[in-house]
Design a protein around this nucleic acid. Structure first.
Lengths: 215, 215
DNA sequence: TAGATTGTTAATCGATTAACAATC
DNA sequence: TAGATTGTTAATCGATTAACAATC
């Protein structure tokens, strides 16, 4: 059922960071690196790097280390960046617009194919050469255009209804910017959350926890 | 040095979710809940909830459970939401604009007091009643207006220079949307990252890992 | 008082680090 | 071959779960 056995969440979460650092090394024309050198740059242990990579395969060479472009490509492949999953964005407000314009979807395995909103003032306008479509036309659009993923940039209370419509269309992968707990809705869906409010509150915790003087 | 001893990162990351669920219970006028009931709603163990909360204090009552508003307020206080840390936003592009407009800073312990950019077309325009200021005036602004936090919404390569200027101004708390690894720059800073690209790649991994048919 | 549920200690599970034999 | 560094096993550390005495 899974390509790489059951890889633990902590390992998966570190992969994009490895990918980023390897990309930077490539920009500097560094072609080879040992786990020890990389661990120093990334401030983690060499052991962890070797353990992490060996979840997926033996990419290194004893006595030599790792090929930077080789490892970069391997991790890109593990992450699945060679795919082009077709995504629709739900919600063309400030956040949705920023996500549409700001993200390099193609570099990350996705292609944005549609944007939906229910605001008559937004419908018909274009973002990144994609026309904003009436949310009422979600079903007909997705039936005509194969869709793998939905991106939720709508307020919390609008989410469950839209999620059910998408689920009924067979679309079960969600990138969720809303604060609705999508993962509780169905069991056979894939959800990746971006909770900006949570992140901001964690920052608040860190600051106030360190700042013993106040309060 | 720390208000609540050394609380582990996993516990801290769960706090905003507890806070959210308790808020929803309050909206439904539910005034009391046991760890068992809450665990069922949140899909985690009652044991974990009790362990998590007891890092900070004994907020429950044997035989009764927890007061929903009581616990809500306690967690809000633990998160430090009673503060109003003064924040400046660096970068008024799509992402910066969305962050400025979309976030309810005041509910999360922050107040947005300034927005900076180096784009002449943006300087002077207003976002949320805050004038976009020339990045060159960062020092004079922060000297005149007490600033606790900086929010980075600029491209990676612009970050280190700006971070150094902020650090020299004594501003050492950062909400980082860029892909520059700020935490490696100084040791006495507080960084909370929002890495949208990483999140998107993790979604890609999850989809492609489940999707054994392809590739 | 009896029932319920906490706070907390003990047991288990998983993730990280250390060590080292294999090997390039 | 000698030196370096991996892949992998074993040891440690930390987080989660289970159990239960304390107590409302």
């Amino acid at each position: 059922m899974h390509k790489y056995g059951n890889i633990s969440a902590p390992v998966i979460k570190r992969l994009p960071r490895y990918y980023r650092f390897l990309g930077e090394l490539m920009d500097k024309d560094i072609t080879r690196i040992s786990s020890r050198e990389l661990s120093a740059k990334m401030r983690l242990t060499a052991s962890q790097i070797r353990q992490d990579l060996n979840c997926f395969g033996g990419f290194g060479q004893q006595g030599y280390g790792y090929s930077v472009p080789g490892l970069y490509n391997e991790i890109g492949h593990i992450l699945g960046l060679n795919h082009l999953y077709r995504a629709v964005l739900i919600g063309a407000g400030n956040l949705g617009k920023a996500v549409a314009v700001h993200m390099s979807f193609e570099k990350r395995g996705f292609k944005l194919i549609g944007i939906f909103d229910n605001d008559k003032n937004k419908i018909g306008t274009s973002i990144r050469n994609i026309q904003v479509t009436d949310l009422d036309d979600l079903e007909s659009f997705c039936q005509q255009n194969h869709t793998d993923v939905a991106i939720f940039c709508v307020p919390k209370n609008a989410v469950p209804d839209i999620a059910k419509r998408l689920y009924n269309l067979g679309i079960k992968n969600y990138w969720n910017f809303s604060h609705y707990d999508l993962s509780l809705l169905y069991n056979d869906i894939i959800v990746e959350n971006v909770h900006l409010n949570d992140s901001l509150m964690i920052l608040c915790y860190k600051i106030s926890d360190a700042d013993v003087a106040s309060d």
